[in-house]
C-alpha cells in the first residue's frame, strides 16, 4: 500500500504503522470469531439434517420413538397456520401504525408509538407468551393455536410498524405535495400514491418480521403447546416446528434427536430464505431510491 514517499522512516513512525496493522488484524480476528459459529451451525444443521430429511418426515404424523420412522407433517401445518394467523392479526395493526408514524406522526402519539415499538421489538419473546397465556389459555381453560398466534402477533406488530414507517419515509415528499395539489384527499394520497410507491419495502418488512416469528419457540411452549395429531382446530393444542425441535432435542431418544436436526433444517431453510430474499430486495430498492 505504501508508496515510496509515504514509507515510514523513523523507528517511532514504523512502530505506529505496525500498531495500525496489528489492530486491523485484531478486527479481522473478531470478524472470524463471529462468522465461525454461524458457519458451524449451518454446517451441522445441513450436514446432519439432510441425512434424516425424507419424504416421510415431511408428510406423515409422528410415531412413538421406539417404533422409528414417522414425521412432522402436523407440525409443519401447525407452524404455517399459527404464523399465518399471527400475520392476519398483526399486519393491519402494524401497517396502520407505521402509516400513522410516517405520515401524521409528528406529535406525542406518533413519537411514543415509535419509541414503544422499538422497545417492544427488543422485549423478551417469552413475555409475549405469558401475556397470551393469561389472556387466552387461562380464560379458555386449554392450550390453543389461537393463543400462540396472539403471542406471535405481539412480536410481529412492532417490527412491521417500524419497517413500514421506514419504507414510507423513503418516498420523496414532492410526490405527496403533487397529490395534494391535484386535490386528492389525505386518505387518497396515502393509499394511492405513497403506499403503492413503498409497497415493495412494506412487503419486505413483513417478510423479515415473518421470518422472525416463524422461529420463535418460547412464546409457544405454553400457548400453542404441542400435539401428536393433525390439527383439530384453532382452539386446540397444536404442534409447531420450533417447539418440536426443542421437545425432540431434550428427549432421551437418538431417533428423535435425528428428527430434531431434520426439523431444524426445514426451519432454517424457511427463515434464511425469507431473510435473504427480503434483504436483497430492500438493498436494491434503497439504492434505487437513493439514486433518484
Amino acid at each position: 500500500m505504501d508508496t515510496a514517499s509515504s514509507r515510514p522512516r523513523g523507528l517511532r513512525l514504523r512502530l505506529r504503522h505496525l500498531r495500525d496493522r496489528l489492530l486491523v488484524t485484531l478486527c479481522l480476528v473478531a470478524l472470524v470469531l463471529a462468522v465461525v459459529p454461524l458457519v458451524w451451525v449451518l454446517w451441522e444443521v445441513v450436514g446432519v439434517g439432510v441425512r434424516h430429511l425424507s419424504w416421510e418426515f415431511l408428510t406423515t404424523l409422528p410415531r412413538p420413538p421406539t417404533v422409528g420412522g414417522g414425521g412432522w407433517a402436523n407440525a409443519i401445518v401447525g407452524s404455517v397456520v399459527v404464523v399465518g394467523m399471527a400475520m392476519l392479526m398483526g399486519a393491519p395493526v402494524g401497517i396502520a401504525t407505521g402509516i400513522y408514524m410516517s405520515e401524521y406522526g409528528d406529535n406525542p402519539l406518533g413519537k411514543s408509538a415509535r419509541f414503544l415499538s422499538e422497545v417492544l421489538a427488543g422485549l423478551p419473546s417469552i413475555v409475549a407468551g405469558i401475556v397470551a397465556y393469561g389472556l387466552i389459555v387461562v380464560t379458555m381453560g386449554r392450550f390453543s393455536a389461537v393463543s400462540g398466534a396472539v403471542a406471535l402477533a405481539l412480536l410481529f406488530i412492532p417490527i412491521v410498524a417500524i419497517t413500514t414507517q421506514e419504507a414510507l419515509k423513503m418516498v420523496p415528499g414532492h410526490q405527496r405535495e403533487a397529490s395534494y395539489a391535484l386535490g386528492v384527499s389525505e386518505a387518497g394520497t396515502t393509499l394511492s400514491v405513497v403506499l403503492p410507491a413503498a409497497m415493495g419495502n412494506v412487503l419486505t418488512g413483513i417478510m423479515i418480521a415473518t421470518a422472525r416469528i416463524a422461529g420463535e419457540t418460547a412464546p409457544l411452549l405454553f400457548t400453542a403447546f404441542n400435539s401428536r395429531y393433525w390439527m383439530e382446530g384453532i382452539d386446540r393444542p397444536t404442534a409447531t416446528i420450533p417447539v418440536n425441535i426443542y421437545a425432540y432435542a431434550i428427549s432421551p431418544f437418538e431417533h428423535w434427536h435425528q428428527q430434531a436436526w431434520a426439523g431444524a433444517l426445514v426451519l432454517l431453510a424457511m427463515v434464511l430464505a425469507l431473510n435473504a430474499v427480503a434483504r436483497s430486495l430492500w438493498a436494491r430498492r434503497a439504492r434505487f431510491m437513493a439514486g433518484h
Binding site: 422472525r212 425441535i245 431444524a264
Partner: peptide, 8 residues
C-alpha cells in the same frame, strides 16, 4: 447470524 432461530 441474527436471523438464525434461538432454538436452532
Amino acid at each position: 447470524l441474527a436471523a438464525v432461530p434461538s432454538v436452532v
